[in-house]
Amino acid sequence: MDLISSRLRFRPMEEQDRRFMQRFLSDGELTRWLPVDYPCPIEQVHLHVDRRLEHWDQYGFGTFVLEELHGREPVGYCGLEHVVESPFIDLRYGLIQTVQGRGLAFEAAMRLVLYGFQGLQLPRIYGAAMPENRASVAVLTKVGMRPDKRFDCYGSNLFTASVDRATFEQAILAGVEQGT
């Protein structure tokens, strides 16, 4: 099951994406905002990809690899996943440096939140970012998320937020009515 947005193709993560995730997760600049101990050695990358693949198998949704519509090379990832041993569904995303700053993170996040509410019928979606990562905090806020201290899975030093389906749909409808 693939999704698309105006500039991106979303395809479920597959075995073939190990090489891309290895490059992504071993790059200190790309991983400096992740809330865990990165960059990753190869064993951690394989474990990371294994977990993404297992999530798809278990739940039928998960993390997508992002490609620009006019290209075939991965430019990032975006997904919705259950946080282990919790009731939370977490929005996750990351982009390679050459495509950052073009609004693609917001576009990907918005498409996935829409998919989560309309396609998966999720009641609430959560997100987390390091407070210093203003770009990521802005993406979470622009998709309608508001601070939510209940989402404490990654430690108290993060900006944590959520949005419920009704609030998101009201905001989308208001944006459509206003022509935004």
Rank of each mutant, 00 (worst) to 15 (best):
A109Q: 00
D50M: 01
V75E: 07
L69D: 05
V99P: 07
R102N: 12
Y126W: 15
G127L: 06
L80T: 06
G79Y: 02
P123Y: 11
P74L: 02
E107R: 02
F64G: 14
Y93K: 07
G60T: 06
L120Q: 10
A129S: 15
G119I: 03
E132V: 11
V65Y: 14
Q97W: 12
D57H: 14
H55T: 00
G94C: 09
V65I: 15
V75Y: 07
V113Y: 01
F61P: 14
R102L: 00
S86M: 02
A138G: 13
E67P: 03
G127R: 11
Q100K: 04
L53Y: 11
E132H: 14
Y126C: 10
D90P: 09
R52F: 12
D57M: 02
L122K: 12
E54R: 10
H55F: 00
L80E: 05
E85D: 14
E73H: 11
I89T: 11
G127Y: 06
R52E: 13
P131L: 03
P87I: 09
F106P: 00
E67W: 12
L104G: 01
D57T: 14
S136Q: 12
E107V: 00
I96E: 13
F61C: 09
A128N: 05
E81C: 12
E67V: 10
A135G: 11
Q121K: 15
Q100P: 03
E54Q: 10
A105L: 01
L120E: 05
W56H: 04
W56Y: 09
Y77M: 07
Y77G: 01
D57S: 11
P131V: 00
G101Y: 04
V137N: 11
R52D: 15
L120Y: 03
G119L: 09
Y77C: 01
H55Q: 05
S86W: 06
V84E: 13
V137A: 12
P123E: 13
G101M: 04
F64D: 11
P131A: 10
R72H: 15
H82I: 04
R111I: 01
E107A: 02
Y59W: 13
G94Q: 07
I125N: 09
Q58D: 07
M110V: 05
V113K: 00
A129E: 05
L120D: 00
R111S: 10
Q121W: 08
Y77P: 00
V137Q: 14
M110C: 02
E73M: 10
N133R: 02
V84H: 05
A138L: 07
I96W: 02
E132D: 15
L120W: 11
Q118Y: 01
Q97Y: 08
Y59Q: 13
L95F: 06
R134D: 11
D57L: 04
I96R: 08
S136F: 10
Y59I: 05
D90K: 02
Q58P: 03
G127C: 11
F64Y: 15
F61V: 06
L122R: 03
R72F: 01
I89A: 07
V83H: 00
S136G: 10
Y77S: 03
